[in-house]
């Protein structure tokens, strides 16, 4: 239940573009001072959610409050308290780094002198102090991202939105951004982070909401989400791709729980009893004369959790995380695997 301690509160948010529901009743609660990951495939509604929270987009229905204020009726109060790092640099590319930060400081009504000193502080902190008058369009991707992050932090926001903050960055740039986010959280800022990278959510977020088709399909810590999928999985690589479906039917688990990756000739299924399943799998495959290149037992990765949860929501409203799948569900899962 929502309390005043929530930095972000979303209840039943809907946003429609023509025929398509970008958000189909999204619920989200983020406690103050935490990092919350919004995880989902392309088109799941992550960016739409962030844009609504940041007052850039109006939702059609539902309650949306940020830092204690309604984004629709108290947009200015919300804007005073947020920082936004979008997918594309929100900077004036013609101007220099200091010019940008000073301008944003003035627009945050810091006053001319404070805007100047704040700009210098931030340039120093993000290692951009020696950029001088060089226009932002000549910056490297990593520098641009750091300046963008600096611009989001002009007023030490209560709530910071990071929309896929490391997309398009090399590993070094990614590491830099992660480092900055960690240091921010130490300062008490609430962070909402969207990402397609499970690793990123796992690294940074206290809690994760998995979003698919405009609603949250699962919510919890990384460990809780992993636990929801079942403990272990058995992986079987079948030598003859033509016999993949036949093999899938033979595994000692309900057929519906077996996910099939045709490209890698890989079957994957959750198992309750590790050793019994392994022995049984070896036995039935041998009996059917199906050659396996590899049979292994694995702990679930967050990737699998993610695919499992998003695939589950493709079934008719099966958003409870149970795998009410049929044949088409497996197809959908494969598509997502390709997309990921």
């Amino acid at each position: 239940m929502a309390t005043t301690g929530d930095a972000i509160l979303v209840e039943g948010a809907r946003k429609r573009y023509g025929e398509k529901d970008a958000l189909a009743g999204l619920d989200l609660t983020v406690r103050r001072g935490t990092v919350h990951g919004l995880l989902g495939p392309n088109g799941a509604g992550k960016t739409t959610t962030v844009r609504i929270l940041a007052t850039l987009l109006r939702h059609d229905e539902g309650l949306v409050r940020v830092a204690g204020h309604d984004v629709r009726t108290e947009a200015r109060e919300v804007r005073r308290r947020i920082g936004l790092l979008g997918q594309h640099a929100a900077l004036d590319e013609e101007l220099g780094g200091r010019q940008n930060l000073e301008m944003f400081g003035r627009l945050h009504h810091l006053g001319a002198r404070r805007a100047g000193t704040r700009a210098d502080e931030l340039l120093e902190r993000f290692g951009l102090a020696d950029t001088g008058r060089k226009p932002v369009k000549q910056y490297s991707g990593g520098m641009r991202r750091r300046l963008d992050l600096a611009a989001s932090l002009i007023t030490e926001p209560e709530v910071l939105f990071l929309d896929e903050p490391t997309t398009g960055l090399d590993p070094r740039g990614r590491g830099e951004v992660w480092e900055s986010v960690r240091s921010l959280v130490g300062g008490g800022t609430t962070v909402l982070l969207t990402t397609q990278y499970l690793e990123e959510a796992d690294q940074l977020a206290d809690r994760i909401s998995v979003v698919d088709q405009g609603r949250v399909v699962a919510d919890g810590t990384a460990d809780e989400l992993k636990a929801r999928v079942g403990v272990d999985r058995i992986h079987v690589v079948v030598r003859d791709g033509a016999r993949l479906d036949e093999a899938a039917g033979l595994l000692p688990v309900p057929r519906a729980e077996v996910s099939v990756d045709a490209d890698r000739r890989l079957l994957s299924a959750p198992v309750a009893d590790r050793m019994a399943s392994l022995t049984e799998t070896v036995r039935v495959l041998a009996a059917a004369g199906i050659d396996a290149e590899d049979i292994a037992l694995r702990r679930p990765t967050l990737d699998e959790v993610f695919l499992h949860l998003t695939a589950a929501s493709d079934g008719a409203g099966a958003s409870d995380g149970s795998d009410g799948s049929d044949g088409s569900d497996t197809d959908a899962r494969q598509e997502r695997e390709v997309a990921a």
Partner: peptide, 13 residues
């Protein structure tokens, strides 16, 4: 068509 307009719009200006 530039990202900067988003920053302006998300500011209390």
């Amino acid at each position: 068509n530039k990202g900067v307009i988003d920053r302006f719009r998300a500011m209390p200006m």
